[in-house]
Design a protein around this nucleic acid. Sequence first.
DNA 1: ATGAAAGCGCTAACAC
DNA 2: GTGTTAGCGCTTTCAT
Lengths: 361, 361
Amino acid sequence: MSTSPSTADDGPSNARNAPHADASPKPARRATIRDVAAAAGVSTATVSKVFRGGYRLRPETEQRVRDAAEALNFSPNPYAQTLHGARTGTVGLITSDIEGRFSLPVMMGAEDAFGSDQVSVFLCDARGDAIREQHHLRSLLGRRVDGIIVVGSMTNPRETLGRDIPVPVVYAYAPSTHPDDVSVITDNVGAGRIAAEHLLSLGYSRIGYLSGDHTYLAARERVQGARSALQAAGTDILGGEALYGPWGEEWGRAGARRMTEMYPDMDALLCGSDHVARGALDALREDGVRVPEDLAVIGHDNWELLARQSRPPLSTIDNNLEALGRRAAELLNAAIDGSPQPGVHEVPALLVPRGSTLRAH
Amino acid sequence: MSTSPSTADDGPSNARNAPHADASPKPARRATIRDVAAAAGVSTATVSKVFRGGYRLRPETEQRVRDAAEALNFSPNPYAQTLHGARTGTVGLITSDIEGRFSLPVMMGAEDAFGSDQVSVFLCDARGDAIREQHHLRSLLGRRVDGIIVVGSMTNPRETLGRDIPVPVVYAYAPSTHPDDVSVITDNVGAGRIAAEHLLSLGYSRIGYLSGDHTYLAARERVQGARSALQAAGTDILGGEALYGPWGEEWGRAGARRMTEMYPDMDALLCGSDHVARGALDALREDGVRVPEDLAVIGHDNWELLARQSRPPLSTIDNNLEALGRRAAELLNAAIDGSPQPGVHEVPALLVPRGSTLRAH
DNA sequence: ATGAAAGCGCTAACAC
DNA sequence: GTGTTAGCGCTTTCAT
């Protein structure tokens, strides 16, 4: 159109385009180390030294360089830097968690641990698909990430991404089945224990367990932890075993009714998840059972949308995903620095007491 | 598993460590274009041509190069490539959405639109903090991203990130207040209309509106859309205006009761969000109002955890965030290619009918 | 159709 | 302290 070079593009005749073309001084080429050197009257090496730090320079020189850089709005091109074999300062985060309820907190923790000015995170969503996962793996390696974190969407162990990957990999939330891999998970057994101990400490003693899907390791481990805490206190889960069923409110409602029937003297109910607990709360309320006066209820996951708004607000156990992300980042850093720590690392869960266990006094 | 006790974490003294330590042969240096050239008996220029494509080479030569590359597990170093002024093939996604319920779907859409082998996404979480946002902005620019997408956590317009940013920026979900910026949002007015039309099409005619926080533009727009649809059908929202209140189930319960009292002949209830709708459903059920036989209910957001598990499952309007992400990516691409399309672009919402409006027949 | 060579922006010896 | 000078891995004229 105008004098401007081939805007070959499909540009559907946007009138706003043309006038703008040469009006605004094209931000020009970004300043390079050489421009700064020239402006400051020093060599490129000196500029480099200023920015890399750890060199002894005359303060005055350094200031001149910084001023020049500032004026030119210069920042070193990281791609040129990494050409010298240094790290790229990037890591990949492969998630399979469409909802983002696990990945995002983990990512935030990792961001913290890395220091967001040191390391940037490429996020890819594999959507639970192994093919896509491999695809993203390749693409991340192509981008020369320094390491990779793989976030699962459930706690069951998963297959390793591959053992011949040229950069360290850390599995978060869902551990790898391969013993030489590095994994970080929430301590689910501990989480179960915390829940049970919370109830015990409040004086509840006839405690039932309404769990979730038995094929979920997390479900079984939480039960196991609770049981061990109860046994340590000289008691046990009512009936000696938890009731398992499909995750979800529906099961929570049905299960809660079954349990109150089976154990009329039950005074507290452990639930395998907040979903189940929410179902239980709703059913109990409908049946005229007062919570926590007649029956205390506690869940797992601290799924806030559910837990905060239930009646009463639901006590629960938080999976501490941010801490998990931080730990994953630390372990990844360690591995990148040459000291991998294979095995499954556990991060403790957190008690979040609310009205469903705490009696107003 | 069974034997594994609490591993209180932090245990650096992991016996599993040592044996693996020096067993693994350092993966050596990655192959470079020169290695491939040597192996294939051609020049580096030829290898480069093979990989960049668009050059005429003897098929046989090309094959030799590809084989050599394959054998050496070579892939071109993108950092070296971008040194030549090309794009980096990276974009930044700045979110302020801790929960990730908006960002992740948007990201997936963007991933799709870009083509995950063309473009990788740096995700940063600003946690709703303008300082952190600027910080991430700098860091992304330092990494030479080709463009940036900013995802808001609520639909209210937000301030521009800055008008002098050297790469294109697209605002998603929350539009920028600056008219020259490029924004993509869900069509909230349309969403309200769709909800109302759905009810009308099912024969409901005495329709109330229980909204959310009046300071939310989305809340008001949805009401506006619904009203216009009703008026087009010759009726209006019961009482001529929606009832506003704090987002959440509690308000849903209280508001629903208020509305049924005010309008005993109401046959359908539009709700400003799924949270509000869920509260309404719970209260109605407690009060013996059958849904949808006595009163139909519909929400907004398709917040599946809530909507799927309510009694009955909640009809709602999906914000179509993946499409929004895709559109954002397209607009960003266009801008990167030199044809920015300033203004606010709208993506239509989607009806998700479920049991709370659909009478079993 | 292929190769030689000059960079891209920066770093790391090694001189001065 | 600061400058010179080779590269890092790749692309791109320009010859051949």
